[in-house]
Design a protein around this nucleic acid. Sequence first.
DNA 1: AACTCCCCTGACAGAAAGGTAAGTACCCTA
DNA 2: TAGGGTACTTACCTTTCTGTCAGGGGAGTT
Lengths: 122, 122
Amino acid sequence: MARAPRNGPYICGIDAALDVVSGKWKGLILWELDAHRVRRFAELRRALPGVSEKMLTQHLREMEQDGLVHREVYPEVPPRVEYSLTEHGRTLNLALAPLGAWGADRVRREGLATTPLLDAAS
Amino acid sequence: MARAPRNGPYICGIDAALDVVSGKWKGLILWELDAHRVRRFAELRRALPGVSEKMLTQHLREMEQDGLVHREVYPEVPPRVEYSLTEHGRTLNLALAPLGAWGADRVRREGLATTPLLDAAS
DNA sequence: AACTCCCCTGACAGAAAGGTAAGTACCCTA
DNA sequence: TAGGGTACTTACCTTTCTGTCAGGGGAGTT
C-alpha cells in the first residue's frame, strides 16, 4: 500500500537490476549523465529525442528514489536543477557496459535500425 | 508492418540488449537454461514459480526469434520439446553477469524482499 | 505587451504487457 | 473410465507504461 513502487520481491539479481533500468529512457539518462557528469533538465531533454517532459521528470524522480541520480536544485530565479550520477549510478553504469557491448554487437550482427544517436555514442 | 516485434530502431547498445531481456521471466529463463544446458517446457514452468503457460511460450518464442534460444521438437507422442541456449544466448548471459551482481548488491544494500529462489541461485 | 525559457505537475487516454481460464489432441496409469 | 501429464493456443480482461495536452509563475528578450 505504501506507494513505493520499485522494490517488488525479486527473483534474482538481474531482476533487481532490471527493475531499476527498465523504463524507456533510463538507459539513455544513465549514459548521458555518465558522459557529462552533470546535466540540467533541459539538456537531458534535448539529448533524448522524443522524450516528453513528463516522462523525463518521472524517470529522474524514480532514479533519484533508487539512489542512482543526485538532484541539486539551485533556488535561483530562472530555476536551475542539475542532475548527476551517484556512486551507485556509476557502478550500475559499469555493470551495464558489457550488456551495452553485447547489444551493439547484436545491432551490427542483425543489421538493426538505429537512431542517429548511436553513431556518436557507440 | 511485418509483425516482427523486436527490432525497433535503437538508441544505443543497452537499448538493443534490454529489448531482448525485458519481459518478466526472460532473465530467469536465461539463468535456468544456462544452469541446466537443456530444459523441457514443463521443467521451465516448474522452475519459474508463478509463470503462466501462455507467458512462458510467448517468451520462449520471442527469445527463439531473437536468436537466444534453440527449440528442438521431438515428434514423439507425448510431445517433447527441448530448449537450450544458442551461442548468442550464452554470451548474453555472460554480459548479464555484472548486472546480476550489481542487482544482488542492491538487494543486500537496501534489504529488499526476495522470493525463495534467490537463496539457491545467487 | 507578447513571447519564450525554465522545470515541472496533473488529468486523461491509448498502447503494451501480463494474467486467467478454457480448449486441443494424444497417451499412460490406476 | 477417470485423471494426469505433454506442449501448447485462443479469447478475454486487468494492470502497467507511456504519451498528449494544458497549465503555472517568474524573469529575460523583442
